[in-house]
């Protein structure tokens, strides 16, 4: 259950963050793309959280400390480059992770086999934008590099053990690093050489410890349900 909760929370939280772009994306096509990715993630979250309990209760009635998502996915959208860097790091991880799970025969296999095909499009989207921004103008290059650097310290958490998640973490880490390195180099960007975890942190998202902005995100995500329990469309 811990594994389904962790992966379900990743998908739910990132879905909400991407949904925040609705009405703000740089072009209409991108607005549609980000909303579509958010919808895929929401579908995955619903399936995963339903393995754990009541999806609505889990999404809307838990306190911050009960969420088990990676700190990476809760990071604010920032500028478009930040959102793309977050997408690149996470979709590469999620695709490799689901790929491993799809090859197994556990409780998450069915969902992973289905979702890995959706995530292939998310990863492709992130890679195409990384190339355009990194190898674009001086301004876009600088912003993309800044975003990749800023989010790097949240990437180490993806390879920490999760109870019940039966994956080869070392293979996951090396494949992730290879994939991300290839894209960043093609985009004329520099792979950050700083620590991939925050030295100051006493734990991380998987242990229920979150960054400051997450509480505010939850407040917005949950307030309607908490104010009007049981409301429906």
């Amino acid at each position: 259950m811990t594994a389904a909760l962790a992966l379900g929370d990743d998908a739910l939280v990132l879905s909400h963050r991407l949904g925040e772009w609705a009405g703000h994306a740089p072009v209409l096509e991108e607005e549609v793309a980000l909303a579509n990715i958010a919808l895929d993630l929401l579908g995955q979250a619903r399936t995963l959280l339903s393995l754990v309990g009541d999806e609505d209760e889990l999404a809307y009635l838990r306190e911050e400390r009960a969420f088990r998502n990676l700190q990476l996915v809760e990071q604010p959208n920032g500028d478009f480059a930040h959102t793309i860097a977050r997408q690149l790091y996470f979709s590469t991880y999620q695709r490799l992770l689901y790929g491993q799970l799809a090859a197994g025969d556990g409780e998450l296999t069915g969902l992973a086999a289905k979702a890995v095909k959706e995530v292939a499009y998310h990863q492709d989207h992130a890679e195409q934008w990384t190339l355009r921004l990194g190898d674009g103008t001086a301004e876009s290059h600088e912003r993309m590099q800044r975003a990749c650097d800023a989010l790097w310290r949240f990437t180490g958490e993806m390879f920490q053990p999760v109870e019940g998640l039966d994956v080869d973490r070392e293979a996951l880490r090396s494949a992730w690093l290879e994939s991300v390195t290839t894209v960043l180099k093609r985009a004329t960007l520099t792979v950050p050489d700083t620590a991939d975890t925050g030295a100051w942190s006493a734990g991380a998202g998987r242990q229920g410890l979150h960054t400051e902005s997450f509480g505010r995100m939850l407040a917005e995500m949950q307030h309607l349900h908490r104010s009007h329990p049981g409301a429906s469309w």
Binding site: E29, E30, V32, A33, A35, N36, I37, E118, Y121
Partner: peptide, 28 residues
């Protein structure tokens, strides 16, 4: 990997000279 290069035929005029605007559209 998502294939990027195979052509898709235009459903209106039948031309194979079509370009991708966005991988995401009106529905998932």
């Amino acid at each position: 990997p998502v294939p990027l290069t195979l052509t898709v035929r235009c459903p209106h005029c039948g031309s194979t000279d079509t370009e991708l605007l966005s991988r995401f559209s009106s529905t998932a």
